[in-house]
Design a binder for these strands. Structure first.
Length: 104
DNA sequence: CTGCTGACTGGTA
DNA sequence: GTACCAGCCAGCA
């Protein structure tokens, strides 16, 4: 690899999100793990919010348990985008760990 | 330079 | 099954 600077983490996160194929969704933890920080899911969310620019399908990034997480305040839009791509959005009445059961 | 917040996760009560 | 807490990371005031 290469010099792994803290800023590099951001680039890797964006690259990982860009790598998500259409019709597929990844969780913040997955992106964090792909970036090299399995526990940096929070930081990933921060980067998404700070890097919500075209080219980065942040709408394909959802929280664990089937929750959409957030989208600046347009979560419904995010849900529509995922549904349009055929992504299995299970975030309907899920709220907590019981939700992750569908995934585990 | 220091501290807080935040689009999260996992575990325990 | 549901609710709360603690931990980790990066960006910003």
């Amino acid at each position: 690899m290469k010099g792994q600077r803290p800023s590099d983490f951001t680039s890797r996160v964006v690259a990982a999100v860009c790598r998500i194929p259409p019709g597929c969704i990844a969780t913040y933890g997955d992106i964090a793990r792909a970036a090299g920080r399995p526990q940096a899911a929070r930081a990933v969310g921060n980067i998404m919010r700070a890097c919500d620019r075209p080219g980065v399908p942040c709408h394909r990034v959802v929280a664990a348990g089937g929750r959409l997480g957030g989208y600046g305040g347009n979560v419904e839009l995010k849900r529509s985008l995922l549904r349009a791509e055929g992504a299995t959005v299970v975030g309907l009445g899920i709220r907590d760990e019981a939700a992750r059961r569908w995934r585990r």
